[in-house]
Design a protein around this nucleic acid. Structure first.
Length: 292
DNA sequence: AATTTATGTCAAT
DNA sequence: TTGACCTAAATTT
């Protein structure tokens, strides 16, 4: 699930569950041993997402930058049980009786699998696995990462015009542009396919052939979809009237999307089989009937 | 037990 | 455009 909504959910969860707490940091797998040693003992003071990057700020002045890549995920444990945020994982809900050490820190279970980072506080723990990036950066380092990112519709400081300036000048297809994090940050393969379907836009339309109005509508719709994703913890883009059971909650997984992963199945709106093809190394899905 | 797949990105060609 | 990265779950042998 690591598109932008997941990272913003993570940032919010870290702020709530770890904010203001002294943290014990380790790298059971070993690949982040040096960084963990520098975080160890410091207080988590800030938590922020920009696109698919998560930034955790510590009172040491350094930031932990994490990118989940294709299959990274955090697992959290505490009195409420265990839960996972990131790549698809089973959610567990049984309450746990927490054991604490002499200093009051929770004693988590022995790390299972390749845990790159483990953070432990007095109330819970967090394990990171499979991330494509996990590094400590200074404020300047954080800024330079963010300078290379386009506006994130989930951030209040986002400027849609900054994206439009790039989109409007290129003959690169809107399908490719939506995946470019320097154009718009946080959109992945699902939000790309679904937002273009909802807007009725042919994915291969060159950026410069879009009108400003159509781009702004796409931006606004993406913002709504992403915010829904943050709220619900899953991506649902179908409108109730396009689902077999409009009242079902939660929305069944198989009814949540219009075109993504539905190659060959009939379009929910016009019945034409959903098409798919490889584009820049990723699978693009669209409806040839609705997106012309 | 081995292979495939995944909501991502980068370097090399 | 291709392979590498690197992990776990789902699927196939």
């Amino acid at each position: 699930m690591p598109e932008g909504h997941t990272l913003h959910r993570l940032a919010a969860y870290f702020a709530t569950a770890f904010g203001g707490a002294a943290v014990r940091a380790s790298s059971p797998q070993g690949r982040f041993a040096e960084g963990a040693a520098r975080v160890d003992g410091h207080v988590l003071t800030e938590s922020e997402a920009h696109g698919k990057h998560l930034f955790l700020g510590f009172d040491s002045g350094e930031w932990l930058r994490v990118h989940l890549g294709l299959y990274g995920a955090w697992t959290f444990g505490g009195a409420d049980g265990e839960r996972h945020l990131g790549a698809p994982r089973v959610e567990g809900a049984r309450r746990l009786d927490l054991e604490r050490d002499g200093a009051g820190f929770v004693v988590p279970p022995a790390p299972a699998g390749a845990v790159r980072v483990r953070l432990v506080t007095a109330s819970g723990w967090a394990d990171l696995r499979g991330a494509s990036a996990c590094e400590l950066v200074t404020g300047e380092g954080k800024r330079s990462v963010q300078e290379r990112l386009g506006p994130d519709p989930l951030r209040p400081d986002a400027d849609p015009d900054a994206a439009w300036r790039k989109v409007s000048l290129t003959r690169t297809s809107v399908a490719v542009l939506l995946m470019r994090q320097d154009v718009i940050a946080g959109v992945g393969n699902i939000y790309r396919a679904e937002s273009l379907f909802r807007a009725g836009i042919d994915p291969l339309t060159p950026g410069r052939d879009l009108t400003r109005g159509r781009w702004e509508a796409l931006w606004t719709d993406l913002g709504g979809l992403l915010r829904d994703g943050v709220r619900d913890g899953s991506i649902v883009t179908t409108r109730p009237g396009h689902r077999p059971d409009p009242g079902a909650r939660p929305v069944p997984r198989e009814d949540a999307l219009y075109v993504c992963y539905r190659a060959g199945e009939p379009c929910r709106v016009c019945g034409v089989p959903v098409a798919s093809r490889e584009l820049a190394g990723r699978t693009l899905y669209w409806c040839p009937g609705c997106q012309g």
